[in-house]
Write a protein that binds this DNA or RNA. Structure first.
Lengths: 183, 183
DNA sequence: CTTAAAAGCTATGCAGAGTAGCTTTTATGC
DNA sequence: GCATAAAAGCTACTCTGCATAGCTTTTAAG
């Protein structure tokens, strides 16, 4: 049988396509193997376990999100930048709920994901510098932003907001709320 | 073999003890059956499936949380009540992360959990009445509160805040942020 | 004191993670 | 060109978990 040309990177791509289409619950080695055109045990030549695959996926997702957020805040500052960051973050999570869900809440404590996570946090820290926030004040501000936007998108993507009645307006108010807390 | 005296209620209690001790990932029919002193298939005489058991657990958890939150806001109003609600909510989720995690984000869309979820939301709505918020303004305010507090506790319980450096202060600021958004 | 429903059991099927051990492909050194 | 070893595939198997089938035992009710 001809070689399939697999690699950890290729498998991560296949797995991300899978969760994009079918959701994170559908992630299994059997499903990834089928899409890769290979028998399930063959995957172990490239990734150590399902957990390891998920970590690699998380790294890719965090990097993608970091890139998008960094681009969104470019050329903006203060309220403008914070709002752009929050909106971009939400847009990504909603457009790619399966991918977003693969990022563990404790990404920074997971060695494989820590570096990528720190870069994303760096973008959060950067938009706060314009407010003169440093040290523990910056930590608190980052936590407010993360908790708020993460909580919102988890509920929204999870169907937690009954009818989509004015969810946009709700998010606008959330952004305003965070901005006011930064003054 | 003597009867074990099981019922859906008893099994929910056993399962909640289990997730309290070992976390939600440890929830399995085999583990519940062992604690109940019964073979795994016997559980199907009382609950229809793992999913159904989780729904029953979610109902119990939401009811417990509702009771605690309702008690916490009794005799308080406005900022006092909102802060008490948020603090009680957080305290419950942190003290019982396994239980809290069993509640799906879309509890209101899950028929079995909808009624209990609506009661919890009722407590949120009640503390906002003192602010004169009704209709869509109340909806937006509830969403701000839910997203913020849920996001915070998910990150905190999930180990998302590196060192526990001043997490209390962070939460204080989150509460203040929400309160300001209600003025 | 009979009897039927309720509540247990064992056996079985199926899916997913992971391991063992074999075969085939392919890159590399001669 | 060709031998050969590592890389990459495969089948077969184990283990755990969910779930169903069908049998047996307990127990409550007439």
């Amino acid at each position: 049988m001809p070689r399939a040309g697999l690699s950890p990177e290729v498998l991560v791509g296949v797995a991300l396509d899978l969760v994009d289409e079918k959701g994170l619950e559908a992630l299994s080695l059997a499903a990834v193997a089928e899409r890769a055109g290979v028998a399930a045990p063959s995957l172990y030549k490239h990734v150590g376990s399902v957990g390891a695959l998920r970590e690699l996926m998380a790294v890719a997702v965090v990097r993608q999100l970091t890139k998008l957020c960094a681009a969104a805040v470019m050329g903006r500052s203060r309220a403008d930048a914070v709002a752009a960051l929050m909106r971009e973050y939400r847009a990504f999570a909603l457009a790619n709920p399966g991918r977003y869900a693969v990022v563990p809440p404790n990404a920074l404590q997971v060695p494989a994901v820590a570096a990528a996570g720190a870069e994303l946090l760096g973008v959060f820290a950067a938009v706060l510098r314009a407010y003169g926030l440093e040290g523990s004040a910056a930590t608190h501000a980052i936590r407010r932003m993360r908790a708020t936007v993460h909580g919102f998108v988890v509920l929204e993507a999870g169907g937690g907001f009954g009818l989509p009645e004015d969810v946009e307006a709700s998010f606008d108010q959330v952004v305003t709320m965070v901005l006011r807390s930064l003054e």
